[in-house]
């Protein structure tokens, strides 16, 4: 028996946002639709809506990340929430305080939402299982497991450019093994019914049984991106060379780096995506990154709107649950 989905309340509303696995197609589409609404907020003179006024959002970053942290911070602020950002990597855990201690301390400050980034898979689930009722947890990346807001912003970007998922061929290139971004993208693409999903990497950067993730496996970049509508490049961590997973950045770029020439087999209107930050000359060359088919900067703007939508949905669910409790 699969365990109940802790992300949803008993009516199927989003309470926590931990992984895209186990979320219905309807719910994913609802998130994408809501994001359309939030996209307009950035065009207002006052880039703020009062939805989460009086709510406190704590960004718990156990692993440093400037970009994700900033976009979550902006998203929360644009919802009028009070935002608290804690870089815990450097502080309490090194003093022997457990993750639960940290959590309990913040709960005592009446935080309404935790946005969590952690180096270990399952960390967001763990926190969601232990927060007080009424507190939502948003996963901002846990180990290799999941980065659901990134996955959704990528789906949002794809939908804006390409529409119907069922006709699309999507190629994901790079370090699938260590990539929470790839896992979230794959889960979303499976649920949204993408036509064909491909993963392209050397064997050392693929997990065991990669086909079980719902994708066709390629080891040749040109073959893998042939007739693709969307080409997603993943970030390559430098540590991978030390772990004997790759011989060198040079050879990686020779084989798996995206150039205009190698992109030639893709559809002429294919878009190129990357979760950032890009290692130019490793994952792709600058010509592609800054070229007409790149939608990388758009991904960043969309990221804020997606995060606003998800935060507003979760806080909204908690509000409704609180209301139900009050009536009981």
């Amino acid at each position: 028996m699969p365990p109940p989905n802790i992300q949803l309340d008993d009516q199927g509303h989003l309470k926590h946002f931990l992984t895209l696995e186990g979320l219905s197609r309807e719910l994913l589409i609802k998130i994408l639709d809501k994001t359309e609404g939030f996209l307009g907020v950035a065009r207002q003179a006052v880039k703020k809506v009062p939805l989460c006024r009086g709510k406190t959002v704590a960004n718990l970053f156990f692993e440093t990340s400037t970009r994700t942290r900033t976009t979550f911070e902006l998203a929360a602020k644009r919802l009028s929430a009070d935002v608290l950002t804690l870089n815990i990597a450097a502080s309490s855990t090194s003093k022997g305080e457990t993750l639960l201690d940290t959590l309990r301390n913040l709960e005592a400050m009446h935080v309404d939402m935790f946005v969590v980034r952690h180096a270990e898979s399952g960390a967001a689930h763990f926190i969601a299982q232990h927060v007080a009722p009424g507190v939502s947890v948003i996963n901002a990346g846990d180990g290799r497991h999941s980065h659901p807001t990134q996955g959704m912003l990528d789906m949002f970007t794809i939908r804006r450019h390409k529409g119907d998922f069922s006709r699309l061929t999507v190629a994901i290139v790079g370090d699938i093994l260590h990539s929470r971004v790839a896992r979230s993208q794959l889960a979303a693409l499976r649920t949204l019914g993408a036509g064909e999903v491909r993963i392209i990497a050397p064997r050392t950067l693929l997990p065991a049984e990669p086909e079980s993730l719902g994708a066709r496996v390629f080891h040749d970049l040109r073959e893998g991106v042939r007739d693709a509508d969307v080409v997603i490049m993943l970030r390559l961590q430098r540590e991978r060379m030390r772990g004997a997973m790759l011989p060198s950045e040079h050879e990686y770029f020779q084989l798996f780096g995206l150039t205009e020439e190698r992109l030639a087999t893709a559809k002429p209107d294919a878009i190129v995506m990357h979760p950032g930050p890009i290692n130019r000359g490793v994952e792709m060359d600058s010509q592609v990154a800054d070229g007409p088919r790149s939608v990388i900067l758009e991904q960043v703007s969309n990221g804020i709107a997606v995060r606003m939508a998800v935060m507003a949905l979760c806080i909204g669910t908690q509000n409704r649950l609180a209301q139900v409790d009050a009536h009981d």
Partner: peptide
């Protein structure tokens, strides 16, 4: 009280 309105349009 009731959460995000079901119909959010841009």
């Amino acid at each position: 009280r009731i959460g995000l309105h079901p119909q959010v349009r841009p």
